[in-house]
Simulated assay, not measured.
Amino acid sequence: MSGDLTAGARLALADRLAGAGVLDAGWREAFEAVPRHLFLPPVYWEFVDDVAVRRDRVADPEGWLAGAYRDTAAITQWDDGDEAGGQQDFTSSLSMPTMVARMLGDLDVENGHRVREIGTGPGFNAALLAHRLGAEKVVSIEIDEALARAARGNLAAAGLGRVEVVVGDGADTALGPGGRADRLIATCSSLLTGVPVAWLEQTVPGGVIVAPTATLFGGGATARLQLADDGRSASGRFTGAADFMRMRQQRYQAPPVDAYLPGDWPGDAEASLTDLDPEDIGDSWLAQFAVGAALPDVYYRRAPYGDTVTWWFFDTAVTSWTTVDSVPGQGEFEVRQSGPRQLWDETHTAWNAWDKTGRPDYERFGLTVTTTGTRTLWLDDPDHLWAPTAH
């Protein structure tokens, strides 16, 4: 699988990204030059119609190679590398080219810039940065030693072995090699309430941080933050939807339902009706983002029972729970709420606020992070905080 065999595929991929308006002209040469297939293992998984399809280089070399140049993500690791895990959760991937191109465009690099990447993964993103800026300008941090080792091999195969790949926690305050960077980019998602303060300390004043963020409730978006001249805060808007794997330090392990409801359902829950179908929230990644940003300590689970889907809402303090039954064709839906917080009322209030504000898109939302650890979400202006619920 020489470069000659993939030159046309690389060019076609770049053409598709440019045609979609996501490929900044300054990045086209890198996408045409760096062979994406060199950053894939012999076996990876590609999602087709929400099903993970196995691509095996030995069994189907043509299918394996074709997948490398489609605009899809490739799963390269399951269960943190635990081969006995039964492939429960994918934990590393080669990101979708569209998302890679958008985030690199958000980074707004210039010649001479030093870039720190959080989350090396297979190394493709680092390779693009190195091709554009020079390998000596790129330091990539990877928490998984096996992934870091594989990324070094991939980068070497692409002729970019001088990129420094460091095994470590990207949220650590230690600067590590390279000192402060002009640009920082993360390829793993952090919670809105958990964007690492260390990233401000790793970036020069006036520098830019591009990072996917998410809420516990659901929904995610890429934040583009610029550091203030004094380096004490970083602020900026979101640039679009994003769905990345969560930083390992921020994965949430929800308690069992019995921790909330030790007896039989509905327990002491109060019954009511609502005219909002929870499926309307679940069908919108943006709505989940807006609601989750207003309720950072609330999450949900869906439980289908025939035609009915029961939505369970929980708070992380394990004090309150709610169920809402979504039944197709109905105009009202049964609600059961238990605990000191009325979680459906809070969710409905947040959804109403987003709806009545014109259902603002990601670009109207912004985030400010300070070195003291405060993180505030705002709408349209940093002085207009997004806090439509109170409890």
Rank of each mutant, 00 (worst) to 15 (best):
F39H: 07
L40G: 01
P41Q: 09
P41M: 10
V43L: 12
V43R: 13
V43I: 15
V43E: 10
Y44D: 03
W45T: 03
W45R: 01
W45C: 01
E46C: 11
E46F: 02
E46R: 13
F47Q: 07
V48N: 06
D49F: 10
D49W: 11
D50E: 15
D50C: 10
D50V: 12
D50L: 14
A52E: 08
V53C: 08
R54P: 01
R55N: 03
R55K: 13
D56M: 13
D56K: 14
R57V: 12
R57A: 14
V58Y: 06
V58M: 10
D60P: 11
E62T: 14
E62R: 13
G63V: 06
W64P: 00
W64Y: 08
L65Q: 05
L65N: 02
A66L: 11
G67C: 02
G67D: 00
Y69G: 00
R70M: 04
D71T: 10
T72N: 09
T72K: 09
T72I: 02
A73N: 02
A73K: 04
A74C: 13
A74I: 02
I75L: 09
T76C: 06
T76W: 02
Q77Y: 05
Q77I: 07
Q77V: 08
Q77S: 05
D79R: 02
D79F: 05
D79A: 07
D80L: 12
D80R: 07
G81M: 08
G81A: 08
E83V: 13
E83S: 11
E83A: 14
E83G: 06
A84S: 14
A84T: 14
G86C: 10
Q87K: 15
Q87I: 03
Q87F: 12
Q88N: 11
Q88T: 14
Q88A: 15
Q88H: 12
D89C: 08
D89G: 00
T91E: 01
S92T: 11
S92Q: 10
S92Y: 07
